[in-house]
Write a protein that binds this DNA or RNA. Structure first.
Lengths: 202, 202
DNA sequence: CGAGGTATATTCACTGGTCAGTATACATCG
DNA sequence: CGATGTATACTGACCAGTGAATATACCTCG
């Protein structure tokens, strides 16, 4: 059976990831993925039952690395809670300025497959976002924020909103605007005793 | 010359709109649009130079109606500015609960065509969102808000974020969360003298 | 008025190419 | 030997766009 560490499987997944993220799902043929991975299509179909399977695997492979990255940006940021949240947006804005940036793979896949509501890739995308939201909520709750759940949802809305808007306008400054809005909302939600003098950035 | 009121052209555009919104761009063939419009493919190509042209026309046709609708929701809402902004989200949440709702056509098209940065449809989508943002900014400025520009951008982020998140989770309650965040941000931005007692909704 | 022409609008049938997925066979290795 | 993995070559469906012909409406000039 093909293990997840299987080198051929990994090669396929790497190629699929690069192409699906860069071009979109329906724009990329299975032939193109196989060629890019340096194998034949039949070999690809030996490792993945169908293209839909491959798409789901592409997103599944991005789940953990993405979450880990976000958490690291948060953990390594200086300052109080609002600053640490804003740091995520700051790092994202930097990434969004790279010419190969194409928004959030999870959201773009969902948008493209919106006519197939039960598609496994969409479920993986939804689960990914839920995990991120749950982590935020827990972080906020630990900080003594009463409305941790609502605040986490607001952060998610700003985050995913900035993915969409920045992709549309190709203007990463929206991501910084989102970061400032996030900072303000977190600041306002902090319990009074923990609230430092609100420092307007810039 | 084919006028915009041309009945055949309108039929094509109606069919294209329905199909592209429901299924996505690349998932819908030109044949499918033609059949749905009750004409032959060649007739479609008489009225539109290419599929890309048709896609652009589909979005262009949605531009004004969408803006008008949003403005009407705002104008007809009771209450002060924060409530009027929140009303847009409330109406949108209601729309999002309809089974045929598939998010924002502009954003989904942009996401799907993200590998074609100069595509005319993307330009139309970007212009549409800019118009909405400009209208919001003007409205906020008239209300005496100093940071009208930044606030308008924040509203856009929340709005487009809720399109993305609600489409992903198929849970329209995120749109109400976005509305509450929008209300809070507008409330906080109002000049003191105009600020009524902030009323937490619910 | 009316015959002939011209631009508009539409149809059927087709092309060259791509797509997801498969049948069959060959190889490698424990 | 036989399980795992890979390759060549194929299938039937679909796709964007086109060629050639036809119908309709209007306009010009005898």
């Amino acid at each position: 059976m093909a293990r997840s560490s299987d080198p051929t499987r990994t090669r396929i997944l790497t190629a699929a990831s690069r192409l699906f993220y860069a071009e979109g799902i329906r724009a990329v043929s299975v032939d193109a993925v196989a060629e890019n991975a340096g194998i034949t299509k039949k070999t690809l179909y030996y490792h993945f039952r169908s293209k839909d399977d491959l798409v789901a695997a592409y997103l599944a492979a991005r789940d953990q690395p993405n979450l880990v990255l976000f958490k690291r940006w948060f953990d390594e940021a200086e300052g109080a809670l609002p600053d640490k949240v804003a740091a995520i947006f700051r790092h994202l804005a930097k990434a969004a300025r790279h010419p190969k940036w194409r928004g959030c793979g999870f959201l773009r896949t969902t948008a493209e497959l919106a006519n197939l509501p039960g598609h496994p890739a969409i479920k993986i995308g939804a689960a990914h976002k839920k995990k991120f939201e749950a982590w935020l909520q827990a972080t906020f709750a630990e900080a003594g924020i009463e409305s941790a759940g609502e605040l986490a949802r607001q952060m998610l809305l700003l985050l995913d909103g900035s993915f969409a808007v920045v992709l549309l306008h190709r203007d990463a400054s929206y991501m910084e605007t989102a970061g400032e809005a996030a900072r303000a909302l977190v600041q306002a939600a902090l319990p009074r005793r923990m609230r430092a003098a609100p420092q307007r950035s810039r």
